[in-house]
Amino acid sequence: MKLSLLRAARAALVIPVMLLMGTAAQAEKIRIALAETPSDELAAFFVALDRAKANGLDYEWTAFSDEELAIQAVLSGQMDIGFGTPYAAMQRSKAPLRIVFQLSKLKFFPVTSKAYDKLEDLNGEPILLHSRGGGTDSIANVIEARMGMEFGERSYVPGSSNRVAALLGGRADATIIDLSNKNKLMRSDAGENFNVLEMFDVEASDEALFANFNWIQENEEAVNIFVEALVSTYRDMHEDPTIIRRETNPDGPIGQLPGEILAELDGFYSDAVEAGLYDPDGGGRKAAQADMEWYAAAGQLVGDPAELDIEDFWYLAPLDKAKN
């Protein structure tokens, strides 16, 4: 869902990549389902994986072409841990899925041509989004509910960079894009041709790490190592965003990205920390409650958010242990 301007050529098919690591924390490797190919926005995650490896975690990862495929891979048992916010699947499925860590917040930005100055101006106007039922679709739903308005025709183009290209090419006048692409567009020579519309603050999860609760209990040691590595990485990143570039393995999947992307890691993570994209404590109860409210308003959870039990969706023990 989140791609930089330099990643428009992402493969559309599943890309399996196996990393065989060190001494196993459990009898078998944990299998991780990514919802996109390795990118600058996954650099912090891979730094955390390297820290977990140093503490004995054995894992392999597979990059799926979108979040829904990653969710289905965990539901089917093909993968153990996945990327996504599978709240609708949690309510529909008999599989006891639980979130253990908030990887990023829904920090997306409505960007338009100069024809629009505020969100209300988009009432009845067409908008370009990532995917039906995805994060930008839920943002559009909540904007409509909060602003008492309704967008016109919704069209879907995966990848923020591709939607930026549509803006630049005059094929769209309004879209919702991620922090990285918003900053790159507005800092470019073409930035003066576009407006970033004022948006209400969102604490809800865009990407989270989730797994089957039964699997979590059977692999408690590995999950604890993983979550502890994520917490330490996110906290260090908030102290000094340049640590992500400095700890990125040059021989790993992020280190193999084009030099132009690697050169921007410090700027990307500095911007992301300043914008509040990442919670240094992994979200926890605050994120879980924000998710209840957001995804209920977005139509992906059924029921009164005040009456939904966050422990039906989150398993907080590993995060509580890591923060102590």
Rank of each mutant, 00 (worst) to 15 (best):
E207P: 09
E207S: 06
A208V: 02
A208N: 11
A208F: 01
L209T: 10
L209F: 09
L209H: 12
L209P: 11
L209Q: 10
L209G: 10
F210E: 13
F210H: 14
A211K: 05
A211E: 05
A211D: 08
N212A: 04
N212H: 01
F213I: 10
F213P: 08
N214P: 08
N214I: 04
W215S: 12
I216V: 14
I216A: 10
Q217K: 15
E218R: 12
N219S: 10
A222P: 11
A222D: 06
V223P: 13
I225V: 10
I225Y: 01
I225E: 03
F226P: 12
V227S: 12
V227D: 12
V227K: 00
V227I: 08
E228L: 02
A229G: 12
L230W: 05
V231K: 00
T233F: 10
R235G: 09
R235E: 14
D236H: 07
H238A: 04
E239S: 14
E239Y: 03
D240L: 13
P241N: 04
T242W: 01
I243S: 00
I244L: 10
R245L: 13
R245E: 04
R245T: 04
R246Q: 09
R246A: 14
E247L: 15
T248Y: 06
N249W: 06
P250T: 06
P253I: 03
P253T: 04
P253K: 05
I254H: 07
I254W: 08
I254K: 03
L257H: 04
L257V: 03
L257W: 01
L257C: 06
G259E: 15
G259Q: 15
E260W: 03
E264L: 11
L265F: 02
G267N: 09
G267L: 04
F268Q: 14
F268E: 13
F268Y: 15
Y269C: 08
D271Y: 02
A272F: 08
A272H: 11
A272D: 12
V273Y: 08
E274A: 14
A275W: 12
G276M: 00
G276T: 05
L277R: 13
L277D: 07
Y278R: 02
D279W: 03
D279M: 00
D281M: 02
D281Q: 10
G284Y: 02
G284L: 01
G284S: 04
G284C: 00
R285S: 09
K286H: 09
A287H: 06
Q289N: 13
Q289W: 09
Q289V: 13
Q289F: 11
A290T: 10
